[in-house]
Simulated scan of single mutants.
Amino acid sequence: MQTKHNWTKEEILDIYNQPFLDLVFQAASIHRENEDYSEVQISSLISIKTGGCPEDCAYCPQAARYQTDLEVQAMMKVEEVIEVAQKAKDGGASRLCMGAAWREVRDNRDFDKVIDMVKAVNSMDMEVCCTLGMLNADQAQRLADAGLYAYNHNLDTSEEDYKRIISTRTYDDRLKTIENVRKAKLTVCSGGIIGLGETVNDRVAMIRVLANMPQHPESVPVNALVPVKGTPLAEQPRVAIWDMVRMIATVRIVMPKTVVRLSAGRNEMSTLEQAFCFMAGANSIFAGDKLLTTPNPEFKDDMLMFELLGLTPRKAFKNGRPQVKVEVVV
């Protein structure tokens, strides 16, 4: 299927609102046009600096202003990150994603440490992704020069719904960070969360922003809200699996070559529910016992599921690796 970048909201809404089985069939058919449709990338996501964030994201237990059970932790050491990365690689992961509870990247010693972490993990033949908040063009380039493969910066929801969820930065701030990531020739990882109390129109509007970018994000995470006690969205009901599958299928149809990441909320899904997500076009998961700060299935459980469903782990750098020479600092 040819990619397009001029989707209308009505076109995407018509896709999303199809009868469920028709939608899944269309998405599965498009997904199977890719000869590697049974490959699923396994990523591991770790929090290299936990809690104490000045933002007010209504879903996030890492925001300093909310009273949650989360324990604030200082920046991890490079050696600790290498140890976690090796464990993830041994478990089958081909990508390590590192998250820090920052509003934005600052040019300081902590960012220097992140650069060293990127260099170290890149030298292990793993794709390296970071999610560190907003960053400028120079910072994005510095990460690229260190060997970073991808940068994650989610839109979370539609522009219209955004202020209900976050007030401490704007939608344009998010789009500007993605633009800076593109300038540095890094791959873009950007998606959103469903279950925030948004409407179907909000979901479709968010997909449209991603699908109409000059270059589609190389990966789009689809997250189901994991409500956390102490946050404003603590009482939100669990997202229905049908909504999750609809979202994944719609993303697959409008961005046929993008890696669609079945992300937060997977711990609450049965193997059968996850199978529906893979059928609808999901081809990446996060594995390991934690997804930043929320529970996640363990590697051994996912390997059993892969065997049952006939899925194979995708190797790192399937589409080529960054052409950079870096010195590893440990």
Results as ranks from 00 to 15, higher is better:
P61Y: 01
S29C: 11
K300N: 11
R65C: 10
E71H: 15
F276H: 08
F276Y: 15
V188F: 05
C130M: 06
K49M: 13
N34M: 10
L143Q: 00
N152Q: 11
N122A: 13
E35M: 09
L70V: 08
Q2D: 12
P227S: 06
V204E: 05
K77Y: 00
M75S: 14
C57Q: 03
L262A: 04
F286M: 04
S263R: 03
E268K: 10
L311P: 02
C189W: 03
W242V: 15
N201T: 12
G92E: 07
Q141M: 13
V24L: 07
I48K: 05
T177E: 09
R261Q: 14
G91K: 10
H153C: 09
A282Y: 00
E11Q: 15
V200D: 15
L70I: 15
A101C: 09
E10R: 13
L291S: 01
D302R: 01
Y16T: 02
G51E: 01
R164G: 13
E307L: 08
G197L: 06
N136I: 07
S190M: 07
R109N: 11
P227G: 11
Y162I: 05
F20R: 05
S284R: 02
A146H: 05
E198C: 03
K119Q: 15
D110K: 12
G288R: 01
L196A: 03
R266W: 02
A205F: 02
P256H: 06
A140P: 06
N319L: 10
S47H: 07
A93H: 05
V330D: 07
E33F: 07
Q236H: 11
G230Q: 06
E39K: 15
T157M: 02
C129M: 06
Q18P: 10
M247A: 11
E39V: 09
R32I: 06
D22R: 12
N6I: 04
C60Y: 00
T3P: 13
K87M: 12
C277T: 08
N6Y: 08
P227W: 05
T250K: 04
Y59E: 08
N267L: 08
I248D: 03
D161S: 13
R142P: 11
A88M: 05
E298Q: 14
T68M: 07
D110Y: 11
G265V: 02
V128Y: 01
K77M: 12
F299T: 00
M76S: 13
C130W: 06
D161H: 15
V204Q: 05
D69Q: 13
M76W: 10
R106Q: 14
C57T: 04
L210R: 04
S190N: 13
Y151D: 00
A150Y: 11
R261N: 08
N201A: 14
L272Y: 10
C130E: 05
E218W: 00
V260Y: 01
K290F: 07
K315R: 14
L233I: 01
D22H: 12
K185D: 14
F20Y: 15
L196T: 02
G52M: 07
V105L: 09
R208Q: 15
